[in-house]
Design a protein around this nucleic acid. Structure first.
Lengths: 183, 183
DNA sequence: AAACAGTGCGACAATCTGCCACATCCATGA
DNA sequence: TCATGGATGTGGCAGATTGTCGCACTGTTT
């Protein structure tokens, strides 16, 4: 793959190590050049030498929110496509993000295919089939619970509180299967 | 009361009788001229003789969704301020509405002051607050369902199939109001 | 007209959830 | 060391939710 000036530059800003690694790889596999930052501040430094054509931004990170990057990215490249991607999604932040010029807004958990689909990354690679089935609600719930659980260091009581769910219910859910997709 | 050209024209589209009566009155009391429609179709008729400067639109009504009015209203008056106001709020529809040109998006219930405040804000704010809690599983499920539903053009059967969920269950879920997130 | 897909809804049994109660553990500090 | 407060594992239960069937109705397609 080439790394010349004609390659599309993709910026990923997210403090979730695993997430950025997976997404970055998936995007590189499609021939794009990627840059990763784990905070808004770090992203700003990157912008000195990297002018992205596309970006995914997390909202909740240490320091400034990814949403503050939207105006700067637009200023740097008016044609940039920006996808907000967050586990702390809300209607108000979604509205603000779009008003500021973000292209789209997705709540985590979202799988790589959906992210790329939102950014129209699928076009140049016809050999990669898009998964047509969305996540099942059960799977989505599981992923979300796991994420919040980890954020609370495995503390079940705290997780249940954060999720507004009864502790007993969360316990029962956790005892059940890890995941079971349909079929 | 004056009905001259200088008065601000306010269009209210909502199928909730009580809601429109109260809101209409409250807005008139502030010196605006109001027109009420209880469906998108009715609103279109009104537009023949009424060119609004501001509007609130409901999403879920018999017949077409209020969101379909956004492009028409913008065409009629490019400076119009449009607020989507719905009891079935979701991030997906919010993103779509703003992209279409709506000024803002509010979940019911909302009082008159909030409504007017949203309509009078001019600049988006990048420093908007991020929620400190993640979405509840119930809310996440609602958002996910709405997104998939839109992807399937509102086809309930297809959506249920895609989600691996029974159609009857999906129907029941859709009839309910979305889960209110506590602040 | 007949076949078909989508929709709305009633009914009922099988599950699941919210909630209270209690019994451990395990730190932390008086 | 003992008291206190959080976290956790279970049992039990009434009420809410879900999976299924069935049926009527409405457009669309053939």
């Amino acid at each position: 793959m080439n790394t010349n000036d004609s390659s599309v530059k993709f910026l990923i800003v997210d403090d979730d190590e695993t997430f950025t690694r997976v997404l970055s790889k998936a995007i590189q596999r499609r021939g794009y050049e990627t840059a990763v930052a784990s905070s808004a501040e770090q992203a700003l430094n990157l912008l000195e030498s990297f002018t992205p054509d596309m970006a995914t931004l997390d909202l909740k990170m240490d320091g400034a929110s990814g949403i503050t990057l939207v105006p700067r990215l637009k200023a740097l490249n008016p044609n940039i496509k920006i996808l907000i991607l967050t586990g702390y999604a809300s209607i108000s932040t979604a509205v603000e993000a779009i008003k500021l010029g973000a292209t789209d807004y997705l709540a985590k958990p979202a799988d790589t295919d959906q992210i790329l689909a939102k950014l129209n990354v699928t076009e140049p690679d016809p050999d990669i089939e898009i998964a047509d089935k969305p996540m099942s609600v059960g799977r989505l719930e599981w992923e979300h619970i796991q994420k919040v659980l980890i954020e609370h260091d495995g503390n079940i009581s705290a997780t249940a509180r954060a999720l507004g769910m009864h502790r007993r219910t969360l316990q029962r859910k956790l005892q059940k299967r890890p995941v079971r997709e349909e079929h």
